[in-house]
């Protein structure tokens, strides 16, 4: 099974969701600034890398967890991936896309623009973390719902 957590640029919300899925972040408390900032790929994906699926790890059930940025064209990119796989006779039954964009609040959005697009990392990165911390338990809820629906819990 392959699970792709998708967001705009694979730099913030998808990274956090994948990290919760893989047990790198706690489920019972809001992680600190450095716990989030030090996650692989967190606030690091370059705009030229958007679209590239990054492997994050395997969960306890052996499912592969990826992150991928799809800009504002998530349906279009998903269509492209699924039709490409079908033409190559690869079953898409065990591929799941989880959209994390609905969990991105204004702080994470503005922080992401400042850091990734304008290059003001010192200002943008902390703002993204604050935004993530504010919505953290919703990320935990989403991941648990995903795990439950896929029979991974």
């Amino acid at each position: 099974m392959k699970i792709f957590y998708c967001c705009y640029g694979s730099a913030h919300s998808s990274v956090v969701a994948a990290a919760i899925h893989l047990g790198w972040l706690p489920e019972d408390r809001v992680p600190g600034f450095h716990e989030i900032e030090n996650l692989p790929h967190y606030d690091k994906t370059d705009s030229l890398e958007i679209g590239t699926p990054f492997f994050m790890g395997k969960d306890e059930k052996g499912s592969e967890v990826y992150i991928i940025g799809m800009t504002g064209q998530r349906q279009l990119v998903k269509n492209a991936i699924l039709s490409f796989l079908k033409y190559n006779n690869i079953k898409t039954k065990y591929i799941f896309f989880v959209d994390t964009i609905p969990l991105v609040n204004l702080k994470t959005k503005i922080g992401g623009i400042l850091s990734r697009r304008i290059g003001l990392v010192a200002v943008g990165r902390p703002l993204t973390v604050i935004g993530i911390q504010e919505k953290y338990f919703e990320f935990v809820k989403l991941v648990n719902e995903v795990k439950k629906s896929l029979g991974l819990l």
Partner: peptide, 9 residues
């Protein structure tokens, strides 16, 4: 973006 995604897949 689509190119990166398909090459990655």
């Amino acid at each position: 973006v689509v190119e990166k995604a398909l090459k990655g897949i």
